[in-house]
Design a protein around this nucleic acid. Structure first.
Lengths: 127, 127
DNA sequence: TGTGGGTACTTACTATTCGTAAGTAGCTCA
DNA sequence: TGAGCTACTTACGAATAGTAAGTACCCACA
């Protein structure tokens, strides 16, 4: 199924500072990146204002910037309907869906284990 | 297996700004958090200097701070041998191993798909 | 004619975080 | 005597993030 060109997959090395994968990691794991991917992974197509109200605490400035970074990486798609008042939809690309699977796994783990983490935090703080 | 107390697991809600899970997400997905977890997940027990040389680009200041945050969350263990010159080992806690599984999945996905991401970046930049 | 509302952004400014480089401790070995 | 080892800590300038106030555009209503 893969052509010879696609078959010779070059693998990124996250541990090296100048690998392009490092930049992508920065966008994905930025303060709001994971939450945007999480929201789109759960909610499917979403409008700007919908994302803003879903992700507690995010500002318009940061949502704009985070979405632009992810769009430039080919992870989300921005669809502007050119209406007034503006209507813009965001969705995950097929590439973004693969990523979102992993991110959802990570997010779910934290939500499920927060109880144990808080217990650990208290035990450690008590020393 | 679970006691009644453990059975009533409270689930975090990452989307709400004041849920404790949000703070943990910040530590984990901080600029260096994922890379530290990745390194310890692959390397097992590691010394400070070993982590520093493994994770390209990290400074001592940031490594110290990242490790301290993760230790306070019960994700990594710090073992000081009280020797001179200093020798300190870091490992993942059992809790940290669960987390590292998801992080390794995410890291592997990025490394495997960086080729396609770069292709997407170029296609989008060409518009 | 004009005033206000709706949505997705920008802009200007301030606060917080980060990176860099230079210490620090204290024991060992030349 | 003093240089070296390792895991930090400190000081300070630079980059990044947060806050609040615009901006654009058209429509509805008075």
């Amino acid at each position: 199924m893969a052509t010879p060109e696609q078959a010779q997959t070059l693998r990124g090395r996250l541990m090296s500072a100048d690998c392009p994968s490092r930049q992508v990691l920065r966008h994905v794991s930025s303060r709001w990146g994971l939450l945007v991917i999480l929201a789109l992974g759960e909610g499917g197509q979403m409008r700007f204002s919908e994302l803003r109200s879903t992700i507690g605490g995010i500002s318009e400035r940061m949502l704009t910037e985070t979405l632009r970074n992810l769009a430039e990486d080919g992870i989300v798609t921005r669809q502007d309907h050119h209406e007034v008042p503006p209507r813009v939809d965001y969705t995950l690309t097929p590439l973004g869906h693969g990523l979102a699977e992993r991110v959802l796994g990570l997010g779910a783990w934290i939500e499920e284990n927060i109880g144990e983490i808080v217990r650990a935090q208290r035990a450690i703080a008590a020393e």
